[in-house]
């Protein structure tokens, strides 16, 4: 517990500040319900106007949840953390409005030469939409 606390705390007290050192492979979380087509779990809108940008300065919970899902995807891809998998499952499930079973997967986009290529890093098992139904 103490070792874990130290490992979590140190990056905040001795930050590296290496923002955007490289533009790494970028994750998207995709889902499908009842074996349907894959779609992005939290798609970004087509456009965000100035008024909405201003409002988001003080109230931006959905966008911050999206960014949290990006962090979780990177953690899951990096070291397969159970916490990241469980949190992604919870957040994807929370966004569902119907169906009985669903799956989610992590798709990464990255540059290869002049092309942007897409690869699947993780695919979940088929899961129940209702949390307590097996």
């Amino acid at each position: 517990m103490i070792a874990k606390t130290i490992s979590l705390l140190l990056p905040a007290l001795l930050p590296s500040w290496r923002f955007f050192k490289t533009v790494a492979a970028s994750p998207r979380v995709e889902l499908r319900v009842d074996a349907g087509d894959w779609q992005e779990a939290r798609p970004i809108p087509e456009r965000v106007g100035l008024a909405r940008m201003a409002r988001r300065l003080v109230w931006n919970p959905r966008r911050n949840e999206q960014l949290y899902m990006v962090s979780l995807s990177e953690r899951l891809a990096e070291d397969g953390r159970d916490h990241a998998r469980a949190e992604l499952e919870r957040l994807v499930r929370a966004g569902l409005t119907g169906g009985e079973r669903f799956q989610f997967r992590l798709v990464f986009l990255q540059r290869e030469g002049t092309q942007i290529v897409k690869f699947i890093d993780y695919e979940s098992p088929v899961l129940p939409v209702a949390e307590h139904v097996s």
Partner: peptide, 13 residues
Amino acid sequence: DVFRFSAYPVSER
């Protein structure tokens, strides 16, 4: 690349 394919831009536009 940040604008082209990263997860950061807030809109497709």
